[in-house]
Nucleic acid binder design. Structure first.
Length: 710
RNA sequence: GGGCGCGUAGUUCAGCUGGUUAGAACGUACGGUUCACAUCCGUAAGGUCAGAGGUUCGAGUCCUCUCGCGCCCACCA
């Protein structure tokens, strides 16, 4: 008897939630419930396969990149589960320090409140409320996509056990002497009121000016009578009040006789020395650089070498603070004090012009740094921060990839990784925000860089530092699939954290997936309105079609110029599959998973389709193993539509009427359909499982059906 | 300043280690379809493979240069 369902066209909306529930109730997302986990025979070595999801930030909802990444991981997981591995996909979310704090602050602002109005305790409570809401939305969205994660193991980077892991890691480094506190010039965000690491900056090219300023010599030099001053070039004249020297390159002949001489710093009227330091580029500007240790990283390093005083002239809010700056009290200094640094620049330049101390002003293209979370301009600023020594850690991270024990796919991304690690500076791990892991030392208000905790993700989620069964079974994990923009921010740090803390690598392979751009190749962005919401695609076309659309366009490592047409094609394809299945199920009630093609009495058409099936099984299997998901899906699509449907199904109509051919034809139809559903399941899990439900004679859910024999 | 990637039909892309008249999808045009599917089937038009030079019996595929587009990194103030 035909199932009533088969009379209607395929409806993803009616199907998907029901099928997902079926999976959840089966318990098979949890590796401990899989048939393989019940095997008692000790001789059989159970193979494990684990992926820890890159935890989405709780700042909002999933975007297309998350969706693509989730589908990639789900394909790998579903295939391995069908291959009989004890398979775990561990889900979770990230507290995302600054990003989340900012977004909750924005919410408060709508009510006219700041975080200071609430106070720390109440504010943090608010953030937890936000987390409850959005953390769950994200997990629900992953479910909508069909992600077969073990939700019973879901983790959050600030849950109780995770806090323990973070503290253990910190203390481990601390005891080793790798964590130290010190005054350094760091990237300071005036809005977020915190330090940021170099990786947390974004850069913007802007048109600026290069100011050439004359710094007069205190005394005339006998053999160089014409020399009355040194000209320095700067893009930031307002910082000059904090200068404590002018530096030149020791090899620079132009300034040879001036090294050690004293200059009078204009406006401040302070005496500063001319020093020699090889960090100075002779070719740039005039070859003489003003040294402002409190507001420039290079200058700070120079000042350490030369033991120069550090004079802070801009405060944490970007305003001039000139108590230390002046030599002699003067009117201009008084006026400048408290002024925003931007205004101070104009005022200073104006005054220098009056004194005839500006030689020239040139147009200059410069690159300004901005906060990656709030887009404010960064103010390099001296402050007391915590640092983690990178020397040993970066070496470990380099070695394990060099040896080939951790592999990038595509391989070219190794270079990005190596280049960063080779020139790495110590990691500033403290942040002056409220939302995050507290630095475990008494009396410290700072929190840890959010990436410090993310760096522990692959093992903290499995129970580290405890010696859990999960750590034994699933660590190291097998694959990390992620976006290229966090190779250093996250992947590299995960690798060295793991090498040091667990003495094992965190994963074998790193898949760097394509970035999803708009059809015109622009960045998808919410604020520009160029983004596409994967949930809307699911609503319109269904989750299978959405998955299809993403993967179908994922050819090679090339970025995807996303076109909704592919999603629409996915919906059409789902319908094609549905109708073809209807036809097969109306024509036969056999259940054939393997077919002996050496059997006689086959028509040419029979032979051709059987040979195609053999070849696509192999091809799809290889493509998935090589992470060529797009190619795998194209292979399946072409086979199923143009060979199985257009050719074989059409031919079968006549063959079914022929008594001598009928049985064979039925068997081949069944074998073809069952093989197809199995191969397609990792890509389009809902519809394949739904059709599977209708197949007479099936024993399991498709989710644990055996992957076809090659 | 350094690095990476891309430029193939109107559009989005395949084309692996160089080898027969360069492929697909979508779009377009025309035709068909009561028999699983109009979310269908069939037919057709469309490309000096960015440009120049080179290696080769043979290059979209390898090398060099040029042009165009995109991305990343860097302490030239």
């Amino acid at each position: 008897m035909m199932d009533e369902k088969l009379l209607k066209p395929y409806d993803p909306k009616e199907t998907e939630d029901r099928i997902y529930k079926l999976w959840e109730e089966s318990g098979y997302f949890n590796p401990d419930n899989l048939p393989v986990a019940k095997i008692k025979n000790l001789k059989l070595k159970i193979k494990n396969f684990c992926i820890a999801i890159p935890p989405p930030n709780i700042t909002g909802t999933l975007h297309m990149g998350h969706a693509l990444n989730a589908v990639i991981q789900d394909i790998l997981i579903r295939k391995k589960r069908m291959e009989g591995y004890k398979t775990l996909w561990l889900p979770g979310t990230d507290h995302a320090g600054i990003a989340t704090q900012n977004i909750v602050e924005k919410e408060l602002k709508k009510q006219g409140l700041t975080r200071h109005d609430l106070g720390k305790e109440k504010f943090i409570k608010r953030v937890w409320e936000w987390k409850e809401k959005y953390g769950n939305i994200i997990l629900d969205q992953l479910k909508k996509l069909g992600a077969s994660c073990d939700w019973s193991r879901a983790r959050f980077t600030m849950d109780k056990e995770y806090v323990e892991a973070v503290e253990t890691a910190f203390l481990h480094y601390y005891k080793k002497g790798w964590i130290y506190q010190g005054d350094r010039v760091v990237n300071w965000c005036k809005r977020c009121q915190t330090s940021l690491s170099d990786l947390e900056l974004e850069y913007e090219e802007t048109k600026g000016k290069l100011y050439f300023i004359k710094y007069p010599l205190k005394s005339q030099i006998s053999n160089l009578k014409s020399q009355k001053y040194i000209v320095v070039a700067t893009t930031r004249p307002e910082t000059m009040l904090g200068d404590s020297a002018v530096a030149v390159n020791p090899k620079d002949k132009r300034y040879k006789n001036l090294i050690g001489k004293i200059l009078i710093l204009p406006i401040a009227n302070r005496e500063i020395p001319v020093i020699a330091d090889s960090a100075v580029e002779m070719e740039f500007g005039t070859g003489a650089v003003k040294v402002t240790p409190a507001h420039d990283m290079l200058d700070f390093e120079i000042s350490e070498r030369h033991k120069l005083p550090i004079i802070k002239v801009i405060n944490n809010y970007g305003k001039m603070t000139l108590r230390q700056a002046q030599g002699k009290q003067n009117k201009i200094i008084e006026e400048l004090n408290g002024m925003p640094s931007k205004d101070a620049r104009e005022k200073i330049v104006e005054d220098l012009k009056k004194q005839n101390l500006i030689e020239k002003i040139e147009d200059y293209d410069l690159r300004i740094s901005k906060c990656y979370r709030c887009n404010s301009i960064i103010e390099p600023q001296i402050s007391k921060q915590w640092f983690l020594k990178m020397k040993e850690l970066s070496k470990m991270a380099i070695d394990i990839v060099k040896k080939g024990n951790v592999k990038f796919h595509p391989k070219k991304w190794e270079k990005v990784y190596f280049d960063w690690l080779k020139n790495i500076k110590d990691w500033c791990i403290s942040r002056q925000i409220w939302w995050g892991h507290k630095i475990p030392l008494d009396g410290v208000d700072d929190v840890l860089d959010t990436w410090f905790s993310s760096a522990l993700w692959s093992f903290a989620t499995l129970g580290w530092p405890k010696k859990t069964k999960d750590m034994q079974e699933f660590y190291p994990t097998k694959v990390l699939s992620t976006a290229r923009d966090i190779i250093n921010l996250w992947v590299a740090r995960m690798i060295f954290s793991s090498m040091e803390l667990t003495k094992k690598k965190p994963f074998d392979k790193i898949i760097i997936h394509p970035t999803i751009l708009t059809r015109d190749g622009k960045r998808m962005s919410k604020s520009l309105g160029t983004g596409i919401d994967p949930m809307i695609l699911i609503e319109k076309y269904g989750a299978d079609a959405t998955r299809f659309g993403l993967i179908y366009q994922m050819m090679g490592g090339q970025d995807i110029h996303f076109s909704e047409d592919a999603t629409m094609a996915g919906k059409k394809f789902a319908n094609k599959l549905w109708n073809a299945s209807r036809f097969v199920l109306m024509s036969t009630d056999k259940f054939i998973t393997e077919y002996d093609h050496r059997r006689k009495n086959l028509t040419e058409t029979d032979l051709a389709i059987i040979q195609s099936l053999i070849s696509i099984k192999r091809s799809i299997n290889n493509h998935i193993n090589n992470y060529s998901f797009g190619h795998a899906l194209h292979t399946f699509y072409d086979f199923f539509w143009y060979e199985f449907c257009d050719v074989y199904l059409e031919a079968s109509k006549k063959q079914l009427e022929d008594k001598n051919l009928k049985e064979n034809t039925q068997e081949i139809l069944s074998y073809g359909l069952i093989t197809s559903l199995t191969l397609l399941h990792p890509f389009m899990p809902f519809i394949t499982e739904e059709i599977w439900e209708l197949i007479p004679g099936k024993k399991n859910l498709l989710i644990i059906e055996k992957w076809p024999k090659l």
